[in-house]
């Protein structure tokens, strides 16, 4: 390959962004730690609140400015194809790491459901636990916990074929709408892009509202909480982390909508959008896993 045809690789000389991001993320987490410790110790008005506020602002502004810088550099055509491929690879591997994060929680669910619940009832080699909690019945969903005073079990669990089914349809539809928006970029049809992207965001927001209502219903009407034993634990942690990811994904899509309105993205240069849509598809796939393993095959009522 001749020297002329070797493309330039953009290496910024110095950046203030990372050190501020490091400081911001440190203050945020340190503050959250202080709040949690004060909460558990029963201290009111934790000083950590201020630390979180400062840290969150530093982190938020830095990330905003960081992304703005990258977008600006891209608009100035400083990035070669090789540079863009670096972003593509990086996003793909980032999503892989996110998948592994969910694997930890799915693994915990399967392990508890298929082994622990039975062992606690005296199955296998675990005879003594039978004597510890004679009233305990192994079942899934676990409605009555071994130590029933400390962990008050739920009265009911969420039926699978009501709100969760609605949410499944919302998210699957949103996977299609975001793909249509992607095609619109490839066709150079900005109006279509904006409309379908807005539709995707709307579906994401409706999903979050429905999920919020489901949590409210679980806490207030069903007695299903984080503290109601291992069923509530796995249920809320899995769906909760998924909900957090939907929130992040929706936020990404809103940013992309803003960029689309400003005239960014064309058929050859739209990886920002594609990265957000990959993330969105990842969030959808996790939901399908949740719908199948937490709700549909979760042993609870279907609601039909």
């Amino acid at each position: 390959m001749s020297e002329q045809s070797y493309e330039a690789y953009y290496v910024p000389h110095n950046s203030k962004l990372p050190i501020f991001a490091s400081l911001g993320i440190f203050l945020t987490l340190f503050g959250i730690g202080s709040i949690l410790n004060d909460m558990t110790a029963g201290v009111e008005h934790s000083a950590g609140t201020w630390v979180v506020l400062v840290g969150g602002l530093v982190l938020g502004f830095t990330l905003f400015y960081w992304f703005a810088t990258v977008i600006e550099e891209n608009q100035q055509k400083l990035y070669s194809d090789q540079m863009n491929r670096s972003y593509v690879w990086a996003m793909a591997w980032f999503i892989f790491s996110e998948v592994m994060f969910f694997m930890a929680f799915f693994g915990a669910l399967f392990y508890v459901r298929f082994w622990v619940v039975g062992w606690l009832g005296g199955e296998g080699d675990r005879g003594p636990s039978d004597m510890l909690w004679p009233a305990y019945t192994p079942e899934w969903p676990l409605m009555s916990n071994p130590e029933a005073d400390k962990f008050v079990g739920p009265a009911e669990v969420i039926p699978s074929l009501q709100l969760p089914l609605v949410n499944t349809m919302l998210l699957i539809t949103s996977s299609f709408t975001v793909t249509i928006a992607h095609h619109a970029i490839k066709e150079g049809n900005r109006k279509k892009l904006i409309n379908w992207l807005a539709a995707t965001i709307a579906l994401g927001l409706i999903f979050l509202v429905v999920q919020g209502y489901e949590y409210y219903h679980a806490y207030v009407d069903l007695g299903l909480t984080l503290a109601s034993g291992i069923y509530g634990t796995t249920f809320f942690m899995l769906t909760g982390f998924h909900g957090a990811h939907v929130t992040i994904g929706t936020f990404m899509l809103i940013v992309m909508l803003g960029r689309a309105l400003k005239g960014h993205f064309d058929a050859d240069d739209c990886f920002g959008f594609e990265a957000a849509s990959w993330y969105w598809h990842f969030v959808d796939v996790v939901w399908v896993g949740l719908f199948i393993f937490v709700y549909l095959l979760g042993g609870g009522p279907t609601g039909f």
């Binding site: 949690l36 558990t40 619940v117 916990n145 071994p146 130590e147 503290a227 509530g232 634990t233 942690m237």
Partner: peptide, 15 residues
């Protein structure tokens, strides 16, 4: 530790 979940507490069905 902070939200009374039962991942590692056998009393709540965890392990």
């Amino acid at each position: 530790i902070h939200f009374a979940t039962a991942f590692f507490d056998a009393g709540g069905g965890g392990d």
